[in-house]
Amino acid sequence: MDSLTDKIRTLCTGLLKDGKVDMIVGFKKGTIPMSSCPCVARTPEQAKELIWDSNCTLNLANYLTNRKEKIGVVAKGCDSRNIVNHIIENKVTRENLYIIGVPCDGMVDKRKIRALFNDDITLFSEENNKLFVETASEKKELDKQDFLKNNCTTCIHRNPVIYDELAADPVEEQKIENRFADVIKIENMSSDDKWNYFNDLIKDCIRCYACRNACPLCYCPTCFVDESNPQWVGKGQDINDVRTFHLLRAYHCAGRCTDCGACEEACPMDIHVRAFTRKLVKDSCEIFDWEPGLDPNKRPALDTFNPDDPDGFIK
């Protein structure tokens, strides 16, 4: 990981020095253990603060839109796929970006790790797929593989799909037996069980919209839940309004979601919001053979019509 950090710093310092980019969007070290902070570097000096580790979980594609500068961006597999989405949706132009691709072997789930300890984690470091975690009273060595974020365990696009330069050699892609086992489990439930499952899932939602705001897809100038004249959705804690938010937000991501997991990472209430979007990822894969964010020259599934599109649902 340290070598990746060094490599990223060298590349970014060079880009800024040579004036190839105006700014770099990357991660810097967080102020608390197991955290990172999306940051901007405009000078070679600032580029020395850039880091890379298993906590660089959020999706930096979220920070690229509505800017005039030429941007260098540090992008792991999922970030790169969301950059492709942005290009397709005319939110950024390829020419305005310099993409430093980072082959990724998964990010760690800080919640799973915190759950192992009684006290606050005071130190976190990693080396060769081992994690070293300390609290005031305990010390543990963990296998990174066992503590990956859920979306990373089913990821089949760890290597950036679009880049100008790679910060390391590509990693081997995972062969996943049953990528959608979690979705199938819900699909096999009865309607009542499904209903109860999702009710329980969202019952703690505080509508802070961290999931939406962490999501690179959610760039609408005014989100439907923020429409006020007239208002579209109730703004209280009524479970039907909360559900409407999650349901429609998910549907807006149909055929676009890369399952980067930023929504879940951002949620302060630990809500498994991907339970909504995963179904759409599976459907777009199975119905339209479509994986979003792989090719900037292909139009997305919900954006095109083919005479042979499956139409079994229409009577």
Partner: peptide
């Protein structure tokens, strides 16, 4: 849309 609604229990 139909699939997602069915998925959440409609």
């Amino acid at each position: 849309m139909g699939n997602l609604l069915e998925h959440i229990g409609i």
